[in-house]
Amino acid sequence: MIGSLANSVLRESRTRDVILVLTAIVILWEGYVWIFEPPRIFLPPPSAIFSEFLKTPGIFVRHMGYTLATTATGFLLAVALGVIAAVGIVYSRFLERTLYTLLVALNSVPKVALAPLFVIWLGTGAEPKISVAIMLAIFPIVIDSVLGLRSADPDMLNLARATRASPLQVLMKIRFPNALPSLFAGMKVAISFALVGAIVGEFVAGGNGLGFLILVAQGQFDTTRVFVSLVLLGLMGTVLFYGIDFLERLMLPWHVSQRSDPGATHPAG
């Protein structure tokens, strides 16, 4: 109890520190623009960015919603497909040699370059954007899931075998729960990748999303609007990341990284 209390206080003070630093940056930025007066087209002050948002908040929120939906859909599909692929890779020598090798090889290709291809294949709607998001997000999911599924304790697996556990039981009761911490680590990387994928998809084609807004504003040399979109993107990415972090805390209270102070709770034995 004392440990978790100390932990939450620690987290609160961390949030406070982050807010302090961000405020300082905004003040310095505002001050710099006031004193040195760089051209607006290069660097608008934070106050201008904020009032630009207030001019048409509805438009920004709508496009942000679009990007959010694309990102979330791509991410969730990447998790589902990635975990299924990982199970296949761990259980089948054939899939390990083919699919896994192929995935690792494909991972070294700059996948963003494939985005235009998806537009040709899938048009200018949400599909190509979701596809690019999946393509970017699925790699960390697969690789971390495979790692987690494989890291089950060999003695535990022996025990299961000696007790005649079925392969499905071994997967569901040992391997999968054991892989969750690793899967969450992969998801934290994947959520940012999904967002990148969604934006790249919007850059390439279509008339929706923050990526589209940035492109349009850039075409009109409206730097302030570019900055509004960037700030919103940053906020969205942060919220998504901590959303997964929160979910991890909720689902894995047993994992080492979540325990406040394992030493203190040990009774004498």
Partner: peptide, 16 residues
Amino acid sequence: PPDRLGVVFQRDVLLD
């Protein structure tokens, strides 16, 4: 594995 078998290893291998 034989019927009616119980195994205990050096490490307790309990599921966390």
